[in-house]
Amino acid sequence: MGFWKRKTMAKTGQSGLDLTSQPYAVFEDVGLEMNQTEILQGVSLTLSEQRIGIVGLNGSGKSSLVRLLNGLRLPSTGSLKVFGQPVGAVRGQLPRHVGFVFQNPDHQAIFPTVEEEVAFGLTQLGNSKEDARVAARALLRRYGVEALADKPFTGLSEGQKQLVCILSVLVMDPEILILDEPMSSLDGLATRRIAALLRDLSQKLVMISHDLSLIDGFDRILWMEGGRLKMDGPPDAVLPAYERDINLKAQAAAADQASAGPL
């Protein structure tokens, strides 16, 4: 990790996160390498919008990009500041302020029952078990699912599972909520319900989605390709361009297959 880390630590003394800082994240020429493979290269960005969507094909670096925001990954090169601090220096504090909802709810829930799962974040923050439980129940009630409190997580529907996963992150009251394809296992109805819930949140959202209709009302769209930022702008500029690009790629692949002859 770079020398800049220790220097800033010394300067600010404590973690020194400025939760009101705008922009909340600043990427400067960020690169990420894992197992000798370049995942991200030369990403420079400042994020401040309330709703940011990320699109890109599989393997384009979307997931790695958002994992940089809460310290799950650290940049190999360049500098990344979140809430005004280099991520390497505040890695342990970031997850409570930058909540993360994963693609597969089955891999995210840690506890067998719903209430325990939602309460976990609060006990992680040092609250007593009783306080955490009361707060968890209150949150479940606010979203109309108090009846699930004692249910085993394994028995929930996919939509309920993802809802519980989102609530178990919201319970920590993060400033930013990152969602990595949260709807990919949901049916149409559950998708709409979760989308409506997300729309009403006061948190800043950064969401990866393959379903473009879910992000076409967002403030800003980032299009990732081959580990680089390919396009960045409002949805009505980026999304049509992205779709056109997918169509062109599909046509090219079909033409390749045709010229190769029958299998």
């Binding site: 003394g13 973690s15 020194g16 505040v90 342990g92 409570r96 994963f102 840690i110 992680q124 923050l125």
Partner: peptide, 20 residues
């Protein structure tokens, strides 16, 4: 997913030197 919610030992009190 566990790391994303503070890891196995939970969050250190804010501003602790053992941050990472």
């Amino acid at each position: 997913a566990l790391s994303a919610r503070g890891g196995a030992s939970g969050f250190e009190p804010a501003g602790s030197a053992r941050d990472k």
